[in-house]
């Protein structure tokens, strides 16, 4: 048996060596590896061996088989007849592997973009509670009880003195209570308004607000800061305007519009103003010494402008078909 195995091995290698063409090689394959080839013959002989001999020859034959196969394949490749050219080659027109598609929520993407713009000009990011007392959400911000300005924000109450924050401005108060100027922060997060749910309003939305307090920051600097932001966010050719408005916590106050070329109209993107001295006094800052500005914007609004989304409810429905688009 050993002898036969060695003979097959030697003659196979010498035959293989002399192969020059595909035909030569095919002859070798039939002779040794084919259905009636020498290798099959050896395995047939093996079947008739005694149980004692079997383990020994089994191993030898397996080694021989793999040696023959791999040598044959090497030769095949060296002749440039690799698998790709043979009949059972792959269909490369098939689609690629279907890898899972995941996305960051569009509101998160917009928030991240806004954050990174402000971070790049030295703003830190602060966060605060979504349920807060009336003082931090309203009174400290110069919105006393029974003031008509309360009508500007429909409020959810947990109890008569506790609210779901109507804006992230409560974070500004917490910040100022715990820190002395200078301040240069943005605050972002979820805010709540008790409004009827429709395509243009939901019971909650997300805000990014900014606050800069020091001894010199002026209205002109606020304009510069927000122009920088708008150009980074919407492109350097964006047309924008500042128009006077009213917020209890800032004075002078302004709203900022950007020009929408497609709709041929101005679109409001944010509100801003110089921090009202009453707010500074409420947190124990000397309003004769310190001044600064604040601004705030709704993320949904900006995302809707940016992506052309018409129904605000889509953001909270989490329909895969919607989320997968971003």
């Amino acid at each position: 048996m050993d002898k036969t195995i060695n003979e097959v091995k030697t003659s196979f290698h010498s035959d293989l060596k002399s192969c020059k063409t595909a035909d030569d090689l095919e002859q070798v394959r039939i002779k040794y590896l084919g259905r009636k080839g020498k290798l099959t013959e050896l395995f047939n002989q093996f079947a008739s061996l005694s149980n004692k001999e079997k383990p020994k020859y089994g191993k030898t034959l397996n080694i021989l088989k793999s040696d023959l196969n791999s040598s044959y394949n090497d030769k095949l490749n060296s002749l440039g007849l690799g698998k790709s050219e043979t009949k059972d080659s792959k269909d490369f027109s098939l689609p690629g592997y279907a890898l899972p598609k995941g996305n960051i929520h569009p509101l998160e993407q917009v928030t991240d973009e806004i954050k990174s713009i402000f971070k790049s000009i030295g703003f830190s990011v602060a966060y605060g509670p979504e349920i807060d007392d009336d003082y931090h959400n309203f009174e400290a911000l110069n919105v006393p009880k029974h003031h008509p300005a309360r009508d500007m924000q429909d409020t959810f109450f947990v109890d008569p003195n506790t609210v779901l924050r109507t804006h992230t401005s409560n974070v500004q108060i917490h910040l100022m209570e715990n820190q002395d100027p200078p301040l240069r922060h943005i605050c972002c997060g979820r805010v709540f308004r008790n409004e009827a749910v429709s395509y243009k309003s939901f019971c909650l939305f997300h805000q990014v607000e900014g606050l800069v307090i020091n001894e010199t920051s002026s209205f002109a600097e606020m304009k510069g800061t927000l122009e920088y932001f708008a150009k980074e966010m919407f492109g350097k050719d964006i047309k924008m305007r500042f128009r006077p408005s009213y917020f209890p916590f800032t004075e002078p106050s302004a709203e900022v519009d950007i020009w929408n070329e497609k709709l041929n109209q101005w679109m409001e993107i944010l509100g801003c103003g110089m921090v009202n001295p009453n707010v500074l006094e409420n947190v124990g800052y000397d309003s004769e010494k310190y001044q600064g500005f604040a601004f705030g914007m709704g993320i949904e609004r900006i995302a809707m402008i940016k992506y052309g989304i018409r129904d605000i409810r889509l953001f909270y429905q989490n329909d895969k078909r919607f989320l997968e688009q971003f």
């Binding site: 030295g122 200078p182 002109a220 006077p244 002078p252």
Partner: peptide, 25 residues
């Protein structure tokens, strides 16, 4: 300022002087 016209106010870009460490937890 309202009557002067916000649009007549030139923007100032002098804010880089106050750069500080940027935190975001």
């Amino acid at each position: 300022l309202r009557c002067y016209g916000y649009d007549n106010i030139d923007a100032s870009y002098s804010f880089s002087s106050q750069m500080q460490y940027v935190e975001d937890e």
